[in-house]
Write a protein that binds this DNA or RNA. Structure first.
Lengths: 273, 273
DNA sequence: GCAAATTTGTTCGTATGTATT
DNA sequence: CAATACATACGAACAAATTTG
């Protein structure tokens, strides 16, 4: 009934990491060293390391070695801004556990603007037929130089073909915010929005941009905005790598979230007795 | 620069699964069959299958074979109920994409009640010193017989030592809801709460209960409830396996979410040109 | 109920390729 | 270029779980 050897080796290394015996950033012994240390074959050692990778505890660098991951202070995004808010919700809502830390300002790439058929999940939320043409605005977002999220907003094509909101096609950041702009030129007022949160593995683009392994996890948040008549006016899809992002949802009256900023820890749900 | 063979094999099988050539529930050819089909060694075939597992496309059953996963209709939980609501928020907020489907009622185990030192993340949120004794109430929750979530609520021990809320120690489901009970016996009114959402890999208990692999993903939602004086009165930790759960956050006025219930699809963020 | 056949899980050894120093 | 370290791939053997005869 003994667990397999590569489990035991992984557990032993995990304990060393979590106890601090192997500090963040430190290099693990090479696979050949571990092979001797544990009296196992190299393949078995590699199986153990694969488990540590899937736990997010270590990373391997070809030609260099295996290293204990440096967990960065997570970015925390509040999803419940005021319904009228244009863009301030996102960037201003990023709290950092080390307050006043330098070099962590949010920056955004210039958007890539396209007219394309709406992906199925977007068409559904815009209540449009599958394949309907829409305007998409795609941006890469960083905090303190670290890849933070990938965001794409989709608008009905009528907004621009009607000639009223042609600025949506300009590949420049909308500093004032798209919500405010749409209200000014079209009289469309955002009265609410819904966030739909899922988790999945990253695609190739996301793996490269965030530099995360293929079997890691990303949050995918679909935000559908609605106007006075309860019609969808925009769908924004934001992808956050789960290893460096957390989400906050406030309901009713709550104190400032800086109160209870946790440190990275393990589970705290009581196990069975 | 060709991708390694186990990538190509995995991609080929993935295409067959996503095209429907290999239907959900169907058995893949055995490893020995695939070994001949692709002219690779068994270990290489197994590496390819491991990739499909991490994508959540297949599962292996020792002694039986490898099967295409049957994705169940996801459970969708709305995190933004009314601040005063006691328990109705959770169970009533589970929408199902196939409306009226039978056998999908939410059921809850009788709680396991303990007095224990607060885990670090809980103590922090209750603004108590680390290790402070708290009352914990732990429940297993199912929908239609399927393990849905594990929930543990933590209350300050003073609530019971003061003699006012001794029902918190009774190992029975609080049908009326704990929030309503606390208001009745202690005059504590919940005016708001905050959900703090993270993602991580499951621990042993969660792997067994949800029957998910060790490298899969769970949502961990910390809900801190606050009273009139902005003091925390309860911390509820809920763990949802990400393969069958999605979360909704409503802000402002939004239409009924049944409108845009998506089907399981892949990413819809436009890749780089 | 048991034995045999089937299928995946673990472990070893070895060789070669690729990335980094 | 050489040395080092991880990545890929092959072959083989036995163990453990499940189904079948």
């Amino acid at each position: 009934m003994a667990p397999p050897m590569y489990h035991q080796i992984a557990d032993d290394l995990r304990e060393q990491i979590e106890s601090g015996k192997l500090a963040p950033g430190a290099q693990l012994p090479t696979e050949l060293d571990l092979r001797e240390r544990y009296g196992a074959s190299r393949n078995t050692i590699r199986d153990a390391i694969k488990r540590l990778i899937s736990l997010g505890l270590v990373e391997t660098r070809p030609g260099q070695g295996t290293y204990v991951v440096q967990k960065i202070d997570p970015f925390v995004t509040t999803l419940t801004g005021s319904p009228e808010a244009g863009r301030a919700e996102d960037s201003s809502a990023v709290y950092l556990s080390e307050v006043g830390k330098e070099g962590r300002r949010a920056t955004v790439s210039t958007p890539r603007v396209e007219v394309q058929p709406a992906p199925a999940e977007v068409a559904l939320r815009l209540r449009a037929a599958p394949g309907t043409q829409v305007v998409s605005r795609h941006q890469e977002r960083y905090i303190g130089g670290i890849p933070w999220s990938l965001q794409t907003s989709f608008y009905p094509l009528e907004f621009v073909t009607s000639g009223k909101a042609s600025l949506l096609l300009v590949a420049e950041d909308m500093v004032e915010g798209a919500v405010k702009y749409l209200e000014e030129v079209m009289g469309i007022k955002q009265v609410g929005y819904r966030n739909w949160i899922t988790a999945r593995t990253p695609d190739d683009t996301e793996q490269k941009f965030f530099r995360i392994p293929h079997d890691s996890t990303v949050f995918e948040v679909f935000r559908t905005s609605f106007d006075q008549s309860r019609s969808p006016i925009r769908v924004t899809v934001t992808v956050y790598p789960a290893d460096r992002n957390q989400l906050i949802v406030n309901v009713g009256e709550v104190p400032d979230p800086m109160y209870d900023q946790p440190k990275p820890e393990q589970s705290c749900v009581a196990p069975a007795p």
